[in-house]
């Protein structure tokens, strides 16, 4: 319990750091990009919207500490101003409309990559010198060396443009509207295949290698030899004794590498014009939409931190040694 509370405190600290970073960036960066943004889009805004954005980006004359206190209050009440590129929709609404797609794509891809990667790693380490152990790792390392977006474009070109097997862009076909019908769900599924497979293909090698290496270390432990001496069946030794222990470092590194996977998912969204926050982030950058940019950054950070916290809770369940301390 204490462990969980400590971690919670740590994640709150991390979130505070990212909020503060967000606060400081527009105020201390050279070149004053925010003024440019205002110059471009001020004519469209109402005076209240202008005041709000000025407060968010520090273009008013209040003392810095007061700006900071107000900023913190705004962030925690979800007041992040209006989006410039999708004027006049508030930033929170823009993100709310798109986070679901990102969760769908990122979650599906991550789940498949983690499960498949870890299983491959377990099997490779169990049968040292076998096909999985000797041939697969170099192949996966090579595939994993490609940038996400490049592989995504390749897949798009090959299976979308040339072969026409899969749709080229977006999360569902133009003209359909979201509904819980079988037709729409399968449409979404078809649109999901290419981006998800791209992410899985690039990231699965990392999971597999990490798991394989931990498993190799675990297999040399005395308790594995002991389990063998006990005459247990190989399957039970492999999963209940070896993999169960090798899983622990994998769970820890899962949280750590989440940020990287999210990054890859964002780039993949851009290539497939998938209507998630990653795609929106690019649009925000191109449209000098700083409020949206910051909102997306904070949202993603919060999501990563929450997942990490969940992982910690799972870890406590998995490792009895943490439970006590």
């Amino acid at each position: 319990m204490l462990f969980v509370l400590r971690r919670l405190g740590f994640y709150l600290l991390a979130f505070w750091v990212s909020v503060t970073l967000n606060f400081l960036l527009p105020r201390f960066m050279p070149g004053d990009p925010v003024s440019r943004m205002f110059a471009r889009s001020q004519s469209r805004m109402t005076p209240e919207q202008i005041t709000q954005l000025q407060q968010l980006f520090g273009l008013d004359d209040r003392p810095l500490w007061q700006q900071y206190v107000d900023y913190l209050g705004n962030v925690f009440t979800g007041e992040m101003g209006v989006s410039i590129s999708r004027f006049p929709t508030p930033v929170v609404e823009v993100i709310a409309g798109q986070i679901g797609w990102t969760l769908l794509l990122g979650g599906t891809a991550l789940l498949i990559a983690v499960v498949v990667g870890n299983l491959l790693g377990i099997l490779a380490a169990w049968r040292r010198g076998g096909f999985l152990d000797s041939m697969l790792p170099p192949v996966l390392v090579f595939v994993g060396s490609f940038p996400y977006f490049w592989l995504a474009m390749g897949a798009l070109y090959l299976f979308g443009v040339s072969l026409g097997w899969f749709p080229l862009r977006h999360a569902f076909s133009a003209g359909t509207s979201p509904a819980w019908t079988g037709e729409f769900v399968s449409d979404v599924a078809v649109h999901l295949v290419l981006p998800a497979v791209t992410i899985v293909v690039v990231s699965v090698g990392g999971w597999m290698l990490a798991m394989r290496n931990t498993m190799i270390a675990t297999n040399a432990e005395d308790y594995i030899v002991m389990a063998e001496a006990k005459g247990l069946r190989p399957g039970r030794i492999m999963f209940r004794y070896a993999a169960r222990n090798a899983m622990l470092p994998a769970v820890t590194s899962f949280g750590m590498s989440l940020g990287f996977v999210v990054g890859g998912a964002l780039l993949t969204e851009v290539v497939f014009a998938y209507p998630g926050v990653g795609y929106q982030l690019l649009a925000a950058v191109q449209g000098l939409d700083y409020p949206l940019m910051q909102g997306i950054f904070l949202t993603i950070t919060a999501a990563v931190l929450i997942v990490n916290f969940l992982v910690d809770i799972v870890y406590v369940r998995l490792d009895p040694r943490v439970r006590v301390s």
Binding site: F10, Y11, L13, A14, V17, S18, L21, N22, L25, P26, M29, P30, G31, P33, G255, M256, L258, G259, F260, V262, G263, G264, L266, L267, L281, V285, Y290, M293, Q294, I296, F297, I300, T301, V304, L305, N308
Partner: peptide, 23 residues
């Protein structure tokens, strides 16, 4: 503590935000 906080911040979004603000 500082290291672990920085490690947790999602890399690419942070990169994007930083790059967007810097010249």
């Amino acid at each position: 503590l500082v290291t672990n906080v920085f490690l947790l911040l999602p890399g690419l979004p942070l990169l994007v935000v930083l790059a967007a603000f810097l010249p």
